[in-house]
Each structure stands twice: as structure tokens, then as C-alpha cells.
């Protein structure tokens, strides 16, 4: 029997639908019942999950919030996942202020209530990349441009060659079909045009007929259509 989906499965499937894939799952962490790390190849998201049992303890909730906030220094985004019926235990304005996302879940599925904010770390990284890009020497750009035009020229030549090859292939295919047609319809016409009722002649040709025409009771049934 298939296992019942865990709360991690339910929460994870919401983000997987948005193009993320799971990197790791951890059920033994401090400050939450479990943690999932996901990525879409560019950014990494940490999701701390609180179970129903944990929501009944204020100290666990506070600890989870603090630990979730700490994760912002390590991941691009962080999200807290709580059971749907405990939505009101967290103040969404506070989470929004600190850029922490919020997901609610139940057995029917998960739903994003508050999207996470990309952490400054990430913004800084992007800024650094942009700054570095500005520093690229103008000569490198010129070099790249000449490379691109060289590759474009090669591509154009290849396209023209491909075109020539395809034309030749089409001519050859036509010639082969023409030759086959000249040969086979003559044989086929003689072979296939035998009257259905002439059973002796049919038997003579039987072996040369395609398998689906040989000894097919439908030929008799259909030939009587009128």
C-alpha cells in the first residue's frame, strides 16, 4: 500500500510545483520538527516545519521563529510552515517585516500565505556580479563580438550545406520511389487485380500477397457488398 504522505511531502510538493527540487530533508534539527532545503538551480530555500503537536507550546513556537530567522544568513529565502488551523499563532506582519515566508498545510495540501523575501546576501551577490560585469574590459567585448560573428558565419555555411544535402536527398528519394513504383505496380497490378472469385489463380498468387491479404475471410464478406 502507498504510504500516507508526510507533512514534509505535502509542503515540499507545493514548492516542487513551482519548479524547485529537494536537496535535503532533516527531521532532527533544533527549533523545528523538520526542515527541507530546496533549490531551483539559482536560489536555495529553507523551510522549517512545525507540526500540530509543537504548535501547542509557546516556547517551541518562539524557538522555531528565532531559528528560522537565523537561517536567513545561510539561505536565499526562508519559510515557516504551520498547520492550517494554527495560522493565527503567528503574526504575518512580523514575518513580512523580517522577510520570512509562511506556508499553511493540512492533509489536503499546502498553500503559500506569505511569499519569502530574497535575503540581502543574495542581493549582494547579484550586485557583485553586476559590478564585476561592468569591469569587463572593452577589448573582451570586442573579442566576443568577433567570435560571435565567426560562429554565425560558420552556422550560415552549415545551413547552406544542409540545404544542399536535403535537396539532393529529396531528389534521390524521389528517384528511388519512382523506380520502385515503376517496378512494383506492374507486378502488383498483375498480382492484385485477379478476380476474387478465381480461387485457383488466387492460390497461385497467395504466397506473393502481403500477409494481411492472404486467407482473409473479410475479402469474401466485403466483396459481396452491393
Amino acid at each position: 500500500m502507498p504510504r500516507r504522505p508526510t507533512i514534509e511531502d505535502i509542503v515540499s510538493s507545493l514548492l516542487i510545483d513551482e519548479g524547485f527540487y529537494e536537496i535535503s530533508r532533516n527531521n532532527e534539527i533544533i527549533g523545528a520538527d523538520s526542515q527541507i532545503i530546496l533549490s531551483d538551480g539559482r536560489i536555495e530555500i529553507a523551510v522549517n516545519i512545525l507540526s500540530e503537536d509543537s504548535c501547542s507550546s509557546r516556547s517551541i513556537i518562539h524557538e522555531t521563529l528565532i531559528e528560522t530567522l537565523k537561517l536567513r544568513s545561510r539561505y536565499d529565502s526562508v519559510i515557516l510552515a504551520v498547520p492550517r488551523k494554527y495560522l493565527k499563532i503567528v503574526d504575518q506582519d512580523v514575518l513580512a517585516k523580517y522577510g520570512v515566508g509562511l506556508i499553511i498545510y493540512d492533509v489536503m495540501g499546502a498553500e503559500e500565505v506569505l511569499p519569502p523575501r530574497l535575503s540581502n546576501n543574495r542581493k549582494e551577490k547579484i550586485q557583485n556580479i553586476q559590478d564585476n560585469l561592468r569591469d569587463v574590459h572593452i577589448n573582451e567585448i570586442t573579442l566576443l563580438q568577433s567570435e560571435i560573428s565567426r560562429i554565425t558565419k560558420i552556422l550560415e555555411e552549415l545551413e547552406a550545406r544542409l540545404d544542399r544535402l536535403e535537396r539532393e536527398q529529396r531528389i534521390l528519394t524521389d528517384r528511388i520511389s519512382e523506380l520502385e513504383r515503376r517496378k512494383s505496380p506492374t507486378i502488383g497490378a498483375e498480382r492484385l487485380a485477379q478476380p476474387i472469385s478465381s480461387k485457383v489463380e488466387e492460390r497461385e498468387n497467395k504466397d506473393s500477397l502481403p500477409s494481411y491479404l492472404r486467407d482473409n475471410p473479410w475479402i469474401d464478406i466485403l466483396s459481396k457488398r452491393a
Binding site: 476474387i196 491479404l213 466485403l222 452491393a226
Partner: peptide, 22 residues
């Protein structure tokens, strides 16, 4: 293959009839 056998066997003067769809 069924199409080929059908075309081969049904007489050429058997006219199309909408009520029989053949």
C-alpha cells in the same frame, strides 16, 4: 492494413450511403 484489405475487396461500383456509412 485493414484499410488496404477493405479497399481491395469492396467493389468499386458500391456507392457511398450515409445511412450505412459505407
Amino acid at each position: 492494413r485493414g484499410c488496404i484489405v477493405y479497399g481491395y475487396a469492396v467493389p468499386y461500383d458500391f456507392k457511398w450511403r450515409w445511412e450505412r456509412m459505407e
